[in-house]
Design a protein around this nucleic acid. Structure first.
Length: 466
DNA sequence: TTTTGAGTTGTTCGA
DNA sequence: GTCGAACAACTCAAA
């Protein structure tokens, strides 16, 4: 077998996916331990069957996150190699080019992704390579959390209780001190991937709001833990208060790991409020775990109702003008419009307002949750294959441990409760109160009644016919 | 083995 | 103005 260099092992490949960080990255740490020079690879795979291409906001984030990652790697003496194409072709191609002896990656949990990874693991091992995969992106891998009868949980609380009763998540791994790279490996230029919008350039609000990359994700975590955690439980529901962590895109792209979050927010001496807040915040991490667990068992989550009786629901598909009014924040309902404009401008929306805007689309406009899910997929910087569809199904009532369908958010009441002085609404809807602001496109009371009537059809189609 | 109670995020209505 | 009940059906675990 040809060797690369003389006294070295054949080089290693670390294949990064949604784990764009150097610290607490078991694939990198293990490859470094192996001692051979290594190539850190990111593959833009828009060809493998079933893998959902990133939306526009996600592509913007990815571009900058890869830039940051490349900088971080080169500071340690390594390089990031970019390639594009189906992983089943491109990974073996790189293996052959550099005569790699080992491949390392962190595990993925979506259906199409697991298919790709399993096939590669088999074929590369048959070709004589070492292949090592690691747990890095979930505190508890889906197959380790089961009910006492061995099946998947369908209700959050017992799921999370089972996680909390399991062995505690491991400590985060430190970043390596240096990386021995492999020189002169060809790769794509990031700009050639054209991940950034140009005509038009709609990313101005994103640039003003976010700094993608591991360094800033760590900074956000540190800031949240030191400055915001104690008040989190009290303030998290106020969209104007800026009381949430804003770690979701960092977790989405793996710039920060759930292990780092888990341990950081529980570190040190905590006041009773902070302890309470930390538990509440970690519960949100728990929902992330729960949603990935659901996706693991239901890989078609973004297209299929988790509860099949919802197949009978008479959704609209957004044929008329209602959908566009919702997307552009011109429904005439201030809190909904503020949320949708926040989303459009900065690629993000406060959690409570996600529920309000989703409920409005599904229950007041009677538009299919999948239509809204696709819009969020395209516009959110943090949309991932598990959380985005699971949360939409949660609001729709069609999901696992979902909100009961009769729970219809009233956006006017929600504004009174959670944005009493209108700070959030005025931030994104400055023309509020002027003649330029549109009249409501639906009557809230009437459309609520229609939604509840439509739900009767689902109930009739459900399990309790008489 | 069977029963029982509790479960992220809400709203409306009537007393 | 405040308060409790009703709005479903089902999963999971404890008793």
């Amino acid at each position: 077998m040809p060797t690369h260099g003389t006294l070295h092992y054949p080089p290693s490949i670390v294949w990064l996916r949604d784990d764009l960080r150097i610290a607490d990255n078991p694939a990198i740490a293990s490859a470094v331990d192996r001692g051979a020079p290594l190539v850190v690879l990111y593959l833009l795979d828009e060809e493998s069957p079933g893998i959902r291409p990133l939306g526009g906001a996600g592509r913007w984030w990815l571009h900058h996150s890869l830039e940051a990652l490349a900088t971080g790697l080169s500071a340690l003496g390594g390089t990031l190699v970019l390639r594009r194409g189906a992983a089943a072709n491109e990974l073996p191609r790189l293996v052959n080019e550099i005569h790699a002896g080992a491949v390392f990656w962190n595990r993925r949990y979506g259906g199409p992704e697991r298919t790709v990874d399993a096939a590669l693991m088999t074929s590369l091992r048959e070709a004589g390579l070492e292949v090592h995969s690691f747990q890095a992106n979930l505190l508890h891998e889906p197959w380790t959390v089961t009910t006492s009868s061995g099946g998947p949980f369908r209700v959050f609380t017992p799921f999370w209780n089972a996680c909390l009763a399991a062995p505690h998540p491991r400590d985060p791994l430190p970043a390596p001190n240096e990386l021995a790279g492999v020189p002169d490996v060809a790769g794509d230029a990031l700009d050639d991937w054209k991940l950034l919008p140009t005509h038009p350039d709609w990313a101005g609000g994103l640039r003003e709001t976010w700094v993608p990359g591991e360094a800033d994700a760590s900074r956000r975590l540190e800031q949240f833990a030191t400055e915001d955690l104690a008040d989190y439980d009290a303030a998290r529901d106020s969209p104007g208060a800026n009381a949430t962590s804003r770690l979701s895109p960092g977790l989405r792209f793996g710039e920060v790991s759930p292990f780092q979050v888990w341990h950081r927010v529980q570190r040190g001496e905590l006041s009773p409020e902070a302890r309470h807040s930390a538990a509440r915040f970690l519960g949100e991490l728990g929902w992330r775990e729960f949603n990935w667990n659901i996706l693991y068992h239901r890989p078609d989550l973004h297209e299929k109702n988790f509860r099949p009786e919802f197949d009978a629901f008479p959704w609209h598909q957004g044929e008329g003008r209602d959908l566009e009014a919702w997307q552009r924040g011109r429904t005439g309902i201030p809190l909904v419009d503020a949320g949708m404009r926040q989303l459009w401008q900065v690629g993000y929306m406060h959690n409570r307002i996600r529920m309000v805007t989703a409920s409005f689309l599904i229950k007041n406009l009677l538009i299919d949750w999948r239509v809204g899910e696709r819009w969020f997929w395209d516009t959110l910087v943090d949309a991932d294959p598990a959380n985005n569809p699971a949360n939409w199904q949660w609001v729709a009532g069609s999901g696992a441990d979902a909100a009961p369908y009769f729970r219809v958010f009233n956006p006017v009441l929600q504004a009174e409760k959670f944005d009493k002085h209108g700070d959030y609404q005025r931030t994104f809807v400055p023309e509020l109160g002027s003649a330029a602001y549109p009249k409501p496109i639906v009557d809230l009371k009437e459309s609520r009644a229609q939604a509840l009537a439509a739900y009767e059809q689902v109930r009739r189609a459900g399990g309790h016919q008489q």
